[in-house]
Structures are given as structure tokens and as C-alpha cells.
Amino acid sequence: MAQERPRRADARRNYDRIVAAAEAEIARHGADASLEEIARRAGVGSATLHRHFPSRQALLEAVFHDRVELLCARAREMHDRPDAGNALLEWLQAVAAYGATTRGLARSLLDGGREAGPPRDSTCEAMLIEAGGELLRLAAETGAVRPDVSIIDLLTLVNAISLATEGSTGAAGEAARLLRLAVEGVRTTTR
């Protein structure tokens, strides 16, 4: 992968102002926040916004990247857990809770493959697939999950739950509860 050239100081400031303005607008209006309003709040012109972010998806990736990286780091920290199945479920619940409480994230993950933007392997979606895929592999090796379950299946489920609960009162708890219900099923357990 080619290394990105360092930005001039003014270009870096514009980039940072655009991302900060986008974070605020997306928190208020979701993934469909007005690009013109983001540029206005950042104090830049529309052309400057588009020079830094050639698509809406590229801007969304920049807004969510650091927080998604924290979720991925959490997955890596869970690799050595003795119960790989519980580690996977705990991580998926964290992803669902974050998606439910972060306006626009779940929607941006849905749109990730539909718009021109950053290379596929650098997207938030790809980062989550890689991090969660390793947890799923470990859980499958211990027999904690069915062998026919893929990380795409699980992240699609998480995304659907995040979309359904986004913005509701107690969204994080509700997302985690619904995910646990979906994963564990509706059967009762006998002791």
C-alpha cells in the first residue's frame, strides 16, 4: 500500500476541522447529515471538504475510524480469554451497543461497499471483520459456535440490532439484550 504524503499544516487543520464538524453533525442528524452544513461549520468551502473526502463514505470512515479501532483493540485483548464463546458474545455486544448509541455508524457500515471510497481493507467494516473473525475462529475451535456461522453473519445481525435500537432510550442496554436473545435463542435452559 502506498504511503500517504504528509499534509501541509493548513491542510491538516482543515481536515481536523472537517472531521470535528462532521462528528457533531452526524451525532445530530445521522449518516445523511448535510455535507454543505459540515463544510460551513468547519469554516471551509465545499470544494475543500470534497478534496479531503471525495465521498460521503470516506468522511464517515474518518469520523468513525478511531472508535472502531478501539473496538478492534478490545477484540485483540480478548484473544486469551478462557471462554472464547463468551469473549465473542461480549465483543459483539460492545459493537452492538456502540452502533446503537452512535448515530450513523450502523448506516455507514451498510453503505461501506456501495460507494467509492477508501480501499476495502482499510474500512471500518474490514477492521471489524478482521478483529471479530479472529474471535469467531477461536470460539469455533472450542466448539462454542456452530461451524457454519461467519463473522459477516454476526456483524449483519449486530448491525440490524444497532439500526433498530439507534437513538432509543437505553439503546446500549437494549442492543446488548437483543443480541444476547438472538444469539442464545428463545429456548429455556434446563439445569
Rank of each mutant, 00 (worst) to 15 (best):
T101D: 10
M78I: 03
N14V: 01
A97Q: 09
L109W: 10
D111G: 11
E115Y: 09
D153K: 08
A75F: 07
A172R: 09
Y98E: 07
E77P: 03
W91A: 11
S150F: 01
R7E: 14
E77F: 01
A131R: 03
A24E: 12
A27W: 04
D83S: 06
D111W: 08
A171Y: 00
R8A: 15
G117Q: 07
R180I: 02
A73R: 07
V44P: 06
T101P: 14
G117L: 05
A84V: 09
G104V: 04
I151Y: 07
P118T: 06
H79L: 03
Y15H: 15
S162H: 10
T102A: 06
A75W: 08
R81Q: 10
D80L: 14
D153Y: 05
L92S: 05
A171H: 04
A175C: 05
L157M: 11
E115P: 12
G167F: 09
A171W: 02
D66S: 15
Q57S: 15
G143S: 02
D80E: 12
T189Q: 13
S150D: 02
M1W: 13
G117W: 04
A42W: 01
C124P: 09
A58I: 00
L128A: 05
A75V: 01
L157F: 00
L105W: 12
L88K: 02
I161G: 07
A126H: 12
L157T: 14
P54Q: 00
R8E: 08
T48V: 13
R7C: 02
A73T: 08
N86L: 04
N14S: 14
R177F: 14
L70S: 09
R120A: 15
P6V: 12
A182R: 03
A131Q: 00
D153E: 04
L60C: 06
T156V: 15
A11D: 15
V19K: 08
D148T: 15
R114C: 12
A106D: 05
P147Q: 10
A39D: 11
V19S: 12
R191G: 08
S122R: 13
E25L: 14
